[in-house]
Design a protein around this nucleic acid. Structure first.
Lengths: 342, 342
DNA sequence: GTGAAAGCGCTAACAG
DNA sequence: CTGTTAGCGCTTTCAC
């Protein structure tokens, strides 16, 4: 019941007949330890089952902890990012811990502060809502990489997928199939002015630009909703109730596309014969037979790997200049898109 | 670029003309501070924008951090638990941080150690794989609550939903509809012997017992697979290839049920006319129109809230005896179940 | 009611 | 190459 006192660096030092400083050096693989001493210390550590006390290390040095702020745990796309990140960190001393950020700027700021208060060595933020100035402010106190946003800042690194191109791929695909009345569902958080560099805003802008480029400027039809099943459902209901119904609906995220399916079936319409549906993120369920959703694929795994690399470079301060890493999406065509009804 | 030195307790003490000890007391709402001093200290903290350095506090006292180990970030059911937990912790000084545990006993042990090394005040483990002795071992060094497992231990608290009853609800419902050939898909991790108290094992056992109770012992048919889309898909393919095909498939989790849908459609069969499908967890997509999956609902939110309560009680050591909190599931009937074909 | 001082476990100069 | 010695920011006796 009573926890035995934890083994400390002092216990190891005593056992190995060396100073605590020596043990610390072995721990950090620091310069200036003879092979003989190194071995003795390691042996003592093993024998005592010593594990460094990360919190204490953090008081002077690093905590070997990287905080990842996620607005929504469930999003399968975020999971891919996490996997890339974890794989890259595997084998290093670093550990990822996830902070649930929620969908509000305030709750996200809260968890970011909590992570900084806990002395995390670096922060990885996925599609954070805060304005750029605030982000730069926190980037001044901790190495930081932002995933998903298109801002470029001198203070933090950015890893993005080209959402402008992704939206263009979708529109061009639909136009090629013969569609003209192509609607878009955007994620639009109510309340404060949110940055236009968020993925959802860029996707909407990409849709707009692509429509114009295809001489369909007059057909532009955007419904503001949310990237969620319910959001997609409600937006699609609105679209299907129009006097002239769209023949294709481009949802900014797969989860929303699922809601669109729902509304379309409910209206007694068929996919893709009556309405074509396109999603974004190419999440695992998009490939499922009964759904078979045409979607835009971003390489989340690579984004995670890149974020880890950038963050480690920063921590080890091999680099002080900021970097923006942009990857290209691809379109995955499936059975949810077809030519419009004659 | 250069981070300004953080405000510390010493700065606040100086500003308020008191000792650091006094500031610490105010911070901890500890006994022995006069209202006047309290106010002065608070004013100084506000003026300087002081935020306590959690890592440093942890060296002597608490870190005000609760670690939650999740085997799979994506599972929407886990998200419900997290929400309940967060809501309960809201307004307290505590913060949840999520440790990605992965699907292996070793990776889970790794993240648990990482959390302990970081001096977290308590651990909440969701369906951990380790054997009970190991769990009890770690429970000796930190307050702990285990969610989902049916073990009862003197060393940690447990929050479970009655999976035995959940499985019985499913079988009884199908039997009532007239089914006899009811198959079950179990989550079975390869390799080591895993505890039989895991939710997946208890659900399988509940299925077995209920089948026997309904005089269908000879019809028991369990396929070992995984709770995932692919796992459900593969298991269902196997089941549908049987000489005598089951008329109902009970997947141990909604995600697996989605894969079952997939396989059923692919085989040219209809749901529920040819095959009935039941899931478990009643995750949000189960309610979606095109899916409309009959499923077992556990109140994840309540489980999270309860876990938080138990953990706080332990931290504040109001309680030393362990508790097991079991809630009851309910069956949500939807369109994926119907009488078997004649 | 208040403050001085000794740590918590580790790192980082700095001597030797 | 090795050990001594200050701290990191906060908590906690224990005098006053």
């Amino acid at each position: 019941m009573t926890a035995p006192r934890r083994v400390t660096i002092a216990d190891v030092a005593e056992k190995a007949n060396v100073s605590t400083a020596a043990v610390s050096k072995v721990l950090r693989k620091a310069y200036g330890v003879s092979p003989a001493m190194d071995e003795r210390v390691r042996a003592a550590m093993a024998e005592l089952g010593y594990r460094p006390h990360t919190a204490a290390r953090g008081m002077r040095g690093q905590t070997y902890t990287i905080g990842m702020m996620l607005p929504d745990i469930r999003n399968p796309f975020f999971h891919e990012i996490l996997e890339g990140l974890s794989k890259q960190l595997d084998g290093t001393d670093y550990q990822v811990l996830i902070g649930p950020g929620g969908s509000e700027s305030a709750s996200q700021a809260h968890i970011m502060n909590a992570m900084i208060d806990r002395r995390m060595d670096a922060l990885i933020l996925v599609a954070p809502l805060g304005n750029r100035r605030d982000l730069e402010e926190t980037a001044k106190s901790v190495p930081m990489v932002v995933i998903g946003r298109h801002d470029r800042s001198p203070d933090y690194d950015a890893v993005v997928d080209d959402d402008l191109m992704g939206a263009a791929l979708v529109v061009d695909h639909l136009v090629e199939l013969g569609h003209r009345r192509i609607a878009h569902i955007e994620h639009k958080i109510t309340g404060r002015n949110h940055p236009t560099t968020l993925p959802q805003s860029v996707r909407a802008e990409g849709y707009r630009q692509a429509m114009k480029r295809n001489d369909l400027g007059s057909e532009i039809d955007i419904v503001a909703s949310t990237y969620s099943e319910e959001g997609g459902y409600l937006a699609a209901r609105e679209l299907l109730a129009r006097a002239v119904r769209p023949t294709a609906i481009f949802a900014g995220a797969d989860v929303a596309a699922i809601g669109v399916f729902n509304a379309v079936y409910e209206a007694g319409l068929r996919v893709p014969q009556d309405v074509s549906i396109v999603g974004y993120d190419n999440t695992s369920f998009a490939a499922l037979g009964p759904i078979s959703l045409t979607s835009v694929d971003q390489d989340g795994h690579a984004m995670g790997t890149n974020a880890a690399r950038l963050v480690l470079e920063r921590i080890e301060s091999k680099r002080t200049r900021s970097v923006l890493l942009s990857t290209s999406p691809t379109l995955i065509r499936r059975r949810s898109t077809a030519p419009p009804p004659a």
